[in-house]
Computed example of a mutant assay.
Amino acid sequence: MDLPAEPAPPPGLSGSRPRLAVVLFNLGGPDAPESVRPFLVNLFTDPAILRVPGWVRPWLGRLIAWRRTKPASENYAILGGRSPLLELTLEQAAALEAALNAEGSVEAKAFVAMRYWHPMTEETVAQVKAWAPDEILLLPLYPQFSTTTTGSSMLAWDKAARRAGLDVPTTTLCCFHSDPAFAAATARIVRGAWDKARAELDPAVKLRILFSAHGLPESIVTAGDPYQWQVEQSVAQVVDRLGIEELDHVVCYQSRVTPQKWIGPSTEAELERAGHDKVAVLVVPIAFTSEHSETLVELDVEYREEAEKLGVPGYFRAPAQNSDTGFVAALAGLVRAARASGRSLCSFAGARQCPKACRDCPHEKANADRRAKVAA
């Protein structure tokens, strides 16, 4: 006979340690072939993604999802009909929870909220409320902030929390693009891939690193989205820690899905340039911290085939962070810093970049300088 679950103790009564709920945000992905279309509908009807008048978005988003279902299904078929993103994110959550609890200062529990497929925000809000934490920390697994990713997830969380009556002190860590521990952990992964590639290549063949990030329409960036600037900062920090003299590298962008002008250069264009220059490439997914279709299919299959056609003399790819111990340690450090700060760290809000409450953000001056250059 199953016994009823014991109710969660009231906040502050579970022991001497405060109960900390850490919510990890990620994109989500279909968990079965029949989930592909509804996943795409959720994606393309999000106002942060499809920036058209509200009255046209529902039917246009569904039309786009319908047109993209077949090619997306073919991509997911390569992965066994489903995305691995949820399992990988749950592994990251478990590793982070263990790291935080090992420190002994809090009783931490990590939750996962996916933006476009289950467990979706409303489900996770209910789980967090049932656990009755003393405080909540929101931690997106996007190192660089964009209104299309972290911004959308935060808005969804705020709405769901209000509807559920979840009123708990909440801190938001909205970006960590230049965090030293994150950069160091990423550089170690890249250096390992670099050394492996160099060992396989003829010494006479040069090797170029393509730091590939998901692209955005240029209009979103010029409106004030800090994503491109933050990607560039991440690359600068990683390159600095690689310590490779005269490193040949470039920042590029993948996954264009609309006819608008997107930020560049594109990863495809950089592969073409590499073929022309007869240099091998090491592709680094600088904005993805978990493997998913855009790394396992777009980078590993589609771009590899394109590189071969273009005569690129070698194609290599660095893995995403997943549950790398250095990356998890970096996340734990970010959680500690955010809790100690007493405010949300490095917050951005669309075209305003940093909200007034966070004008002391150490990155705001650099962001202001970049906005001035764009305006000029």
Results as ranks from 00 to 15, higher is better:
Y315G: 01
G61T: 03
A368S: 13
S153Q: 06
P319E: 08
Q321C: 12
R339I: 13
V281I: 11
I244N: 01
V205P: 02
Y142S: 13
T325W: 14
R115G: 06
Y315H: 07
V235G: 04
D225M: 06
C175P: 12
F44T: 00
W59V: 07
V106N: 05
Y142M: 10
A223R: 11
T124Y: 03
S73W: 03
E298W: 06
A349W: 05
Q260Y: 12
S212M: 14
A338C: 08
S219E: 14
L299H: 00
P362Q: 10
R304L: 10
D225F: 01
R256M: 04
F316M: 03
Y303V: 04
P11K: 10
Q254W: 04
A132C: 14
P9A: 12
L40W: 02
W55L: 07
S83Q: 05
E268M: 00
S323L: 14
V297D: 00
H177R: 12
V374K: 14
L155R: 13
E97F: 12
V41K: 10
E364D: 13
A77T: 15
F348N: 02
P84W: 01
A161I: 13
L345G: 05
V281T: 09
A366L: 13
G275P: 09
L155C: 07
A187H: 07
G12Y: 09
A21N: 02
R371D: 01
P11T: 11
F211S: 08
A318E: 05
A95F: 05
A184D: 04
H363W: 10
F327H: 08
R57D: 07
I286F: 04
T186L: 08
V251A: 04
K278Q: 09
A93F: 00
E364P: 12
R115T: 05
G165D: 07
R17N: 05
P180C: 11
V56W: 15
R37W: 07
R188G: 03
Y315P: 03
A318P: 08
E218L: 11
G81V: 06
E74G: 12
G81F: 06
E218F: 13
A368Q: 08
L24P: 01
A274M: 09
T267Y: 02
V106W: 11
P217W: 03
V190G: 01
K70L: 01
E97A: 14
G326K: 09
L247E: 11
R82T: 05
G311E: 03
V168E: 13
A183T: 10
V279Q: 15
A274E: 02
S178N: 11
R67L: 15
R208W: 01
S146T: 09
A204Y: 10
A376V: 10
T170A: 08
T150R: 07
E74L: 10
K206W: 13
M120Q: 11
W194D: 00
P10L: 11
S344N: 09
A349L: 03
L166E: 04
A94R: 11
V235N: 05
E135T: 10
V251I: 13
P47V: 07
I286C: 08
S14A: 13
A8T: 15
S212C: 13
E200W: 05
A269K: 09
V125T: 03
G275N: 14
N322L: 12
T295C: 02
T121D: 02
A93E: 01
A357D: 08
A8Q: 13
